[in-house]
Nucleic acid binder design. Structure first.
Lengths: 213, 213
DNA sequence: ATAAGTTTGTGAAGTATTTCACAAGCCTCC
DNA sequence: GGAGGCTTGTGAAATACTTCACAAACTTAT
């Protein structure tokens, strides 16, 4: 088992690993046996040195003069990223975005299984959404006690977010993917990632405004 | 006009400015007159020194002993981020995600106006989506010549992405927000931001797997 | 077997970003 | 109007991340 030692791995490195994996799966699918850091770098939009450095944190997978074995590296990366088993996720917030997420193919394709959809709005509770039925937010804690939930995806109004997050944490879920444009306060052992579309758009607005002409 | 000098502004700084702005708008809304770097830092989940450093790139907006004037700083940040006028965006890809985006309130609330929705699937062309009608992807170039488009948001299958991006660039659009889990190749003067949900989830998977217990 | 040609793995160097720490400035109160 | 209490703005230090550059190791060709 390639343990990441006691070194802290940079978030940017993990993001790139995820990208390497995606392209390696593609190469594996078409039967390519090896890939060089140069090839991976071009595919992923980074540099060969970066690829080698990223991978070297976890061991030496390549063969000098030849490159990396595609299939084996794919499996190693899955292992490193913890994709060996299906993570179970719940979606909280049965609005537009929650809806798109619940039906999003990419989740299941990559091993994330939606095991529940929650909302606090009585009008939405009980409706069928994809495979699941929308359940009352209040029953989350009880449900989690019966069926393991690894990750909560929240797509709810900003004003409700901290309350909901507190309930998620209290229920024992240790990872949150947030689509809420607010900073969330959680204990240090909880992993949080935020997707903030407004922030990305404003980044583009800044780039367009302050471009070097 | 607070020009960002000739210094390059880090992307992370821009993201935080966007977050400061969001909270300042809230404070302005409830009539708070000043805010210290300490208060902003706590709201945004960063440090006071970071707040001061970020803002100092653009000028000195605060008053020692007192903090930053909420309303004025709000306006300054809008200006810096280029939010003074409405940016016009098109959404390309009338699928689940494109749909959620087209109806997403957050866009218009923050000054981004959806002026068109495009797809290449004949079955989808012509349908009404929110305020707009889905148009043929092929007519993008002609449409852009008639009505300014600042940003293209793409929510399409990965295999189509590079083709579509090339058309976007050829049409003269200079900023792209991508929901496609692929690296895109564009000329250097084009600004691209990518939102990759699978990557975020895998980041959580990594965190859960390699947590410090 | 040897030479030529690749490509990895990795310290070291270079850049970028964050944090520190404190002088300087402003407000308030006496 | 001077003293005390905050809070900014910012060089300098610390930390984090990326790129360089090259020895070592492997493959292939002859």
């Amino acid at each position: 088992m390639t343990l990441p030692a006691n070194k802290r791995i940079a978030e940017s490195t993990v993001r790139r690993l995820s990208m390497y994996l995606r392209y390696l799966e593609g190469l594996d699918g078409v039967g390519q046996l090896t890939a060089s850091s140069d090839e991976l770098a071009h595919l992923c939009g980074t540099t060969p040195a970066q690829v080698r450095k990223d991978l070297s944190f976890f061991g030496s997978f390549g063969k000098r003069g030849l490159g990396y074995p595609v299939h084996e590296l794919t499996e190693r990366l899955r292992e490193i990223l913890g994709l060996g088993h299906a993570w179970q996720i719940v979606i909280i917030g049965a609005g537009k975005i929650g809806s798109a997420l619940a039906e999003y193919r990419g989740f299941r394709q990559r091993g994330f299984q939606v095991v529940g959809v929650y909302d606090k709005n009585p009008e939405k509770i009980g409706r069928a959404w994809g495979d699941a039925t929308v359940r009352d937010m209040e029953s989350l804690a009880v449900d989690v006690a019966e069926q393991r939930v690894d990750i909560a995806v929240i797509a709810i109004p900003a004003d409700d977010a901290q309350d909901v997050v507190d309930k998620i944490v209290a229920a024992g879920i240790r990872a949150i993917l947030s689509f809420v444009p607010t900073s969330l306060h959680v204990p240090p052992h909880i992993a949080v990632k935020t997707v903030n579309m407004a922030m990305e758009l404003e980044g583009l607005s800044f780039a367009l405004t302050n471009r070097a002409d």
